[in-house]
């Protein structure tokens, strides 16, 4: 008889746990962005599957799948850059602005991009 879900013995496959669907909030955001962009027709799902697959097959992918949404995010950025929606520099600059904004936001307040002290 099979043991209940959760009794993985070998180190070959990552152990099953009662994992939440998303480990961190940004993963949920990244997931939903791709679903919404597909729904809006920005890209077709097979295009997305190809883009994600390329990232997931990179040699540095973690065997335990823990970096799955890192690959997801990278795939999403690259696909949007390839489609001319944005550029890598734009994303990188804006990400830094968000980090500065977070740093300048008092604890307990919502982090807003307006809080970036270098915002022009």
């Amino acid at each position: 008889m099979s043991p209940p879900d959760g009794a993985l013995a070998s180190p070959g496959l990552p152990k099953e746990a009662d994992e939440p669907v998303f480990v961190e909030p940004w993963q949920a955001q990244a997931f939903a962005l791709a679903v919404e962009l597909n729904a809006r027709g920005v890209f077709e799902w097979p295009e997305w599957a190809d883009a994600l697959s390329r990232e997931l097959h990179s040699p540095d992918a973690a065997p335990d799948g823990s970096d799955y949404y890192d690959h997801w995010m990278r795939a999403l950025e690259k696909l949007l850059v390839a489609k001319g929606v944005t550029t890598s520099d734009t994303v990188a600059d804006l990400a830094l602005a968000w980090q500065r904004a977070a740093h300048a936001t008092p604890h307990g307040r919502p982090i807003l991009l307006e809080n970036d002290p270098q915002r022009s």
């Binding site: 734009t90 990188a92 602005a97 968000w98």
Partner: peptide
């Protein structure tokens, strides 16, 4: 407050 790199990139894309 600290936004990790991935969290910041997601916010950037969303913006």
């Amino acid at each position: 407050n600290h936004l990790g790199e991935m969290a910041a990139r997601v916010r950037a894309l969303e913006t």
